[in-house]
Every structure is written in structure tokens, then in C-alpha cells.
């Protein structure tokens, strides 16, 4: 038995949430005026800043694609973001992998053909990590892209889910899937990152790095997609609020 109980028999998780609770989400748009688009996004204690440069002239010839724009992601972990103070180099394999999956995912949401022969640079700074980092990055990027006015087909939202089945010493069939895992859960449980495209529930990213029983996958996916729906509502509220504020400001200026 591990040191702490991730899911108590009474159905409460280590931080007091139930199986289907999201953590507190806090989102802001247009946080950095110097960029074309920016956002700040918190999921519980995972905190991400995203800034967008572009669409603009590609930085190198190789980034020029004749019929659509190219997307480059630049991901950076702040040294103080984790439990131990640690500097992560740029060439870190996990970082590169995350960059690639972000690039591929957003290539499906951005209407790239409208912006041929240009480049969009997405830079992400992870200020604090407490599980579901990739999901937080996706959500932050979506907000920043909207702020930058880049055409998207719909909201691209992401969320994580874990399975308590292999962990729980209780009856396996009763084990609940867990929504929005934090770092303690992420370390001990099989976890899945799901990203869906807006209201369609179309899954555009599905990432899992652990082993899990196939039978458990379905409910994990269902819970994850459900979480994405809620997340979309939250992002939508944020965007509308931001839009309203912008309009109000313009009214005042007039």
C-alpha cells in the first residue's frame, strides 16, 4: 500500500474532490500586450502562460509551406515549476514530444489553408506543474489563438482522466474513473489525456503512457470527453467575458 490513499472507499480523492470533479479553472486572455495573442490558464495548481507570434513571415525557408501555414510550438518549463528546482534543457525529449503532439493537434483545429506561406509560433511557459500539463497547454493555446484572431474551426479543449481500478484494493468493478488528475494521481494511476474539437466531441488527441486494462479504457474516455465538454463551456464563458470587456472598452473610447 502506498503512503497515501488516492481514492478513499468513501469516494473522495486525496484533495477532497469526487471522481467527476474538475479542479478549479481560472483563465485570462490578452495578458501580454506585446504579443499577437496571449492567455494565462490555471487548472488547480497547474499554471501555464501562452503567447502567440504570427501569423507572420516564416522564420526559415523550411517553415514555408505553399498551401497552408506552419505551426511551431515552443514549450518551456520554468525551473521553479516542479517540486524540485530543476532546469530543463530545450532538447529534453519529453518536451520535444509534447511540442510535436501540440503542433499536430493544432494543425487540425486551425484553418491553416487560409494562411498559406506563413508561420504561427506558439510559446508556452509552464509556471507550475501539478498534473495534466498537456491538457492545460492545449486549453491555454486555444484561448491565446482566439485572442490573436487566428481562424479556428472550433474550441480545441483538453482534459485528463485516470482509472483507479488498478490502484484500488477494493472490488475492481466498483472502481471509478477519475476526472482531471493531479500530479499525485498522475504518478500512480494510468492516465489519459483527451482533446476534443468543440461541440462535436470529435477526439483529436488521445494520449496515454501507461498500461491499462482495455475494459477500463472506455469509461476513462467517456469521463474525459465529458470533462472536455465542461471545459469548453468554461473557455466559452471566458472568451465571451473577454469579448464583452473589449466591446465595453471600445464604447468608452468613443
Amino acid at each position: 500500500m502506498s503512503r497515501y490513499e488516492l481514492l478513499s472507499p468513501e469516494g473522495l480523492r486525496i484533495d477532497g474532490r469526487r471522481w467527476n470533479d474538475l479542479r478549479r479553472v481560472f483563465a485570462q486572455m490578452a495578458t501580454q500586450p506585446s504579443s499577437n495573442g496571449s492567455s494565462y490558464f490555471e487548472m488547480g495548481n497547474t499554471k501555464v502562460i501562452c503567447t502567440i507570434q504570427g501569423p507572420g513571415e516564416p522564420t526559415s525557408r523550411s517553415k514555408t509551406i505553399h498551401d497552408r501555414c506552419s505551426i511551431s510550438v515552443d514549450l518551456n518549463y520554468a525551473p521553479f515549476s516542479g517540486i524540485d528546482r530543476k532546469r530543463r534543457g530545450r532538447g529534453d525529449k519529453r518536451t520535444v514530444e509534447m511540442q510535436t503532439s501540440l503542433e499536430n493537434t493544432f494543425a487540425q483545429a486551425i484553418r491553416t489553408t487560409l494562411l498559406a506561406r506563413s508561420e504561427i509560433i506558439i510559446s508556452l511557459h509552464i509556471l507550475s506543474q501539478d498534473g495534466s500539463v498537456l491538457a492545460a497547454c492545449i486549453n491555454a493555446t486555444t484561448l491565446a489563438l482566439i485572442d490573436a484572431g487566428i481562424p479556428l474551426t472550433d474550441y480545441l479543449v483538453a482534459c485528463t482522466s485516470g482509472s483507479s481500478s488498478s490502484y484500488s484494493t477494493q472490488n475492481d468493478e466498483d472502481a471509478d474513473p477519475l476526472l482531471d488528475v493531479n500530479s499525485l494521481e498522475e504518478n500512480d494511476l494510468p492516465c489519459l489525456t483527451v482533446a476534443t474539437l468543440g461541440a462535436t466531441d470529435k477526439v483529436v488527441l488521445l494520449l496515454m503512457e501507461n498500461k491499462v486494462n482495455v475494459e477500463k479504457l472506455e469509461e476513462m474516455l467517456a469521463v474525459g470527453i465529458d470533462g472536455c465538454k465542461t471545459m469548453r463551456r468554461i473557455l466559452d464563458t471566458t472568451v465571451r467575458k473577454h469579448g464583452k470587456e473589449l466591446l465595453e472598452k471600445r464604447e468608452q473610447l468613443r
Binding site: 469516494g11 473522495l12 484533495d15 477532497g16 474532490r17 469526487r18 471522481w19 467527476n20 470533479d21 479542479r23 478549479r24 488547480g44 495548481n45 517540486i83 507550475s128 501539478d130 466498483d174 471509478d176 474513473p177 493531479n182 469509461e219 469521463v223
Partner: peptide, 29 residues
């Protein structure tokens, strides 16, 4: 180490006498 703690009001008192807690009793998956 940063730990979050979500405080809630739907943890029932679990007494069969209590009416209030039966209304908002939480459900599992």
C-alpha cells in the same frame, strides 16, 4: 510541495435520521 484541498458541503452525515443530507447525497460513476 503544494497541495490543494477542495472543501465541500456534500459529505453526508450518514445518519438515517437526517433529511437534508439525503437530498444532496453524491453518486458514484
Amino acid at each position: 510541495v503544494v497541495r490543494e484541498l477542495y472543501l465541500r458541503q456534500d459529505i453526508p452525515c450518514s445518519s438515517k435520521l437526517c433529511q437534508a443530507c439525503t437530498y444532496n447525497a453524491p453518486t458514484d460513476a
